[in-house]
Structures are given as structure tokens and as C-alpha cells.
Amino acid sequence: MRTARTSLRSRIYSVLRHAILLTGGVVMLFPFIVMVSTSLKPPSEIFSPTFTLLPQEWYAIENFREAFTRVPLARFILNGLLVGATIFLFQALFALPCAYALAKLRFAGRQMTFVLVILALLIPPQVPAIPLYIGMWQLGILDTYAAIILPSTISVFGIFLMRQFFLQIPDDLIHAARIDGLSEFAIVWRIMLPTAIPALTAFAILSFVWNWNDFFWPLIVIQSEHLATPPLGIVFFDNAEAGTNYGPLMAGAVAITAPLVIAFLVAQRRFLEGFAMTGLR
């Protein structure tokens, strides 16, 4: 118990705590440090036998220019934004009405619907890959934006999350809306959506981070460089460089890591809330 007036023991403990956490923190940050530090250095320093944190000769501009010209890095980032935003919009569009129906409406088959959602929740994203690939091949939409986006248009996790959130909204709010003459459809978009903004924001963050970072599916369906999402793009870059030109490669890695890392540092609390919500199910 922290009961008595600050004792020596608790002060030692506090110092120890900071020491352990700081050491661990350095280890956690170390790949980022390597990444940023390498992106600032000329090849000669990168391959020097002793590691230095900062370069003797600043080479950042050259590395980043190389990264952005050798491959369409800006395009990759734009693709990432476009794909992430589109996917989230679709996910919200389909998940919100379904979550509302599951949480607040009584219809024959509601329980079955919920069981299906839970079942789908258990299926890892790699399982449907082969049939989806075959299907898209038959439709002739491989190597398009649609191919990346389509499988993610539905998020069962989103449905589940929003259902849990809607369950906490008092029924009276919905009764009042019905008495005010709103249709069920209008209730979803004009009552439930605004009340669900906090949960939806958290889900938006999760969804965007997942899709920005997803590598498996874009790798399967995308061949054209100009359609690549950031992780796929950096692999194109890696292959083009045959893994020797680390400076520009790390510059590229910094460029595609930076948006989410900066977003996280700016909206830290929201991110942590969002990811803590994955513990709901």
C-alpha cells in the first residue's frame, strides 16, 4: 500500500520502474531509430562498421528524392488513403443498419443473423482468399482498386462492435424517434449514427490502420505498380533495389510509416481507446 508518507522504498521502486520502462522503451523504438537514422545517411556511412545515430554527412534529401522518384511513392500513399477511406465508408454503410437491426429490432431470424455474424468473425481473412481470387478472376476485376476493396466492404467486427454499442442506447430514444415519425431507416442515419460517433471513430481508426497496413490481400490481387497500397509499394521498391540501397529504402519506409505514426501521436487517446475496443468481443 502507498500508505505511509513517501518512504525510501517507494522512491527506489519509482526509480526502478522508470529505469525498466525506459530501457524497454528504447528497445521498442529501436527499429524506428534504425529506420530514420538510415534514411538520413549516405551509402558509405550506412555500410560503415560502426553505427551512429546521426549522419556525419546529411543525405536525407537525396534519399527521399530517390525514394519518391524511383517508385511512385506518393501514388502508393494516395492509394492507401483512397482504399482505406472507401473501405471504411462501405463498412459503415453496411454495418450500421445491420447493427441497429440486431440490437434494437425484433425480427424473425435475428438470432440466426447474429450467429452468422459471430461465425464470420471466427474466420481469419486468409481463409476466403482462394475462392475470392477465383471469383474476381472470373469477373475480370483482378488488378483493380475494386479487387482490393470488395472483400473488405463488410466488417463483421464492425457490426459486432456497433451492435454492442447500440445495446447500451436506451430504447426510449428510439421510441421517441418513432413517435416523432422517423422511419427505421431514418432512425439509423439520423439518430443512431450521431449517437454512435465515438464508437464509430474508434472503429474508423481500427479499420483504416488495418487496411493501410494489410499486405496479404493486395499482394495477391495487384500486379500493377500504380495500384499498389503502401506496404505492397515498398516491396516493389525493395525488389527493384534488390535490397542493397538501404538509404532510399528506409526513406520510403519512413514515408509510409509516418502518416499513421503521426496520426497516432496526435490522437493518441483515440487510438488507444479504439484498440482497447478489440477487447470487447
Binding site: P97, F107, V127, A129, I154, I159
Partner: peptide, 28 residues
């Protein structure tokens, strides 16, 4: 009415769940 509303709100998501998850899983 509630049945109709429930089904019409849940159906789009249900169709996609079958198309993207459950159907492909069975196909696999």
C-alpha cells in the same frame, strides 16, 4: 413492420457476409 424493417436493414450486410466470408469458406 418491425420484421420488414429488420430484414431490410440486415439483408445487405447478410448478403455480403455470405459473399465474402461464409460462402468462400464453404467453397474452400
Amino acid at each position: 413492420l418491425e420484421n420488414v424493417a429488420g430484414w431490410s436493414l440486415a439483408t445487405p450486410a447478410l448478403v455480403l457476409i455470405w459473399l465474402m466470408f461464409l460462402g468462400p469458406a464453404l467453397v474452400v
